[in-house]
């Protein structure tokens, strides 16, 4: 079935949470759960979505949901999947929602192990490009030039010096059943990928870019638009990996919009024209490699 705004499950599974106004991560979680339905069993490690979703007695998930250790999202998914299977339950999806830090830094070992075992789980990384929950510290998915509290912008060093880790390719290099990138600026594409992933047996990974108004220095109403622009100017590539083959889903519409896209965000305000040229060259070399 084709999922869109009309056919989407009208139930809300993530409601009344305490995320900041305009939070991209909460939109990614809400939409994924609407696609997966009430039989989804959600695992959330330490991070924004567990902090805003479970404030006892305010419990904002309508489906089964549990907080895992920071490093153990994937291993808890493995356990839940094996446990429910052992009890003879089959109509469920074990889904994890970890942030960029919980995926690319702290949880990468457990994730790598789960992919290696090909456990039947869906791992969704909502990427807001820093440890936002604890007050914007750099993660390995923070892009070059971004200002965080641990990579401040000063006279000599201008924000983060390292490029963003390519988590999608790292996951794909395991020979995973299905991996995809998505953006909350392109929700129909994201919903399609979540739906497709839920129908595959084996490990699935979806990496969704989810702007954080607080950490990125944008207005609350801009998060969806910024996520869309990141795709349109070629900075974030919507792609899939399935059966050993990479495919790029969209072509950037407006490569020259990169400069205005960067300048809109408070975290990049300090960057000079040369810095932005460098970001542009990082982007272009990625596209020269076939978008990978």
């Amino acid at each position: 079935m084709n999922v869109n705004a009309n056919t989407l499950n009208e139930d809300e599974f993530f409601y009344g949470h305490k995320a900041c106004a305009g939070c991209g991560g909460s939109l990614a979680v809400r939409i994924a759960l609407k696609v997966l339905g009430k039989r989804a069993v959600a695992v959330l490690p330490a991070g924004c979505m567990s902090a805003v979703g479970f404030n006892f007695p305010q419990l904002c998930f309508a489906n089964n949901a549990i907080i895992s250790t920071f490093a153990g999202t994937a291993s808890m998914l493995t356990g839940i999947e094996a446990g429910l299977r052992a009890k003879g339950i089959t109509d469920f999806v074990a889904v994890g929602f970890a942030g960029d830090g919980g995926t690319a830094d702290i949880g990468i070992q457990a994730l790598s192990g789960a992919i290696d075992r090909d456990d039947n789980i869906l791992y969704i990384c909502y990427d807001n490009e820093a440890y936002m929950n604890t007050g914007v510290q750099k993660s390995s998915l923070t892009p070059f030039g971004a200002k965080t509290t641990t990579t401040p912008a000063g006279g000599n060093v201008r924000g983060n010096l390292r490029p963003k880790k390519n988590m999608f390719e790292i996951v794909a290099a395991h020979g995973i059943k299905y991996a995809a990138t998505a953006s909350i600026g392109y929700l129909p594409d994201y919903m399609k990928k979540v739906q497709h992933a839920s129908e595959i047996k084996g490990t699935k990974y979806i990496h969704v870019i989810a702007p954080c108004p607080t950490g990125w220095g944008i207005a609350p109403d801009e998060s969806v638009e910024i996520a869309k622009e990141a795709v349109d100017c070629g900075l974030w590539i919507l792609a899939e990996y399935e059966n050993g083959i990479f495919s790029v889903n969209t072509k950037p519409k407006n490569l020259s919009a990169l400069r205005t896209h960067i300048k809109k965000q408070g975290r990049f305000k300090h960057l000079t024209d040369e810095d932005i040229d460098h970001i542009e060259s990082l982007r272009d070399s990625k596209w020269e490699n076939g978008g990978q």
Partner: peptide
Amino acid sequence: TYEAGYLISKNAGWR
């Protein structure tokens, strides 16, 4: 463990 979807406060005051 506790009942899922249990809300005790609104978010209207944030607005």
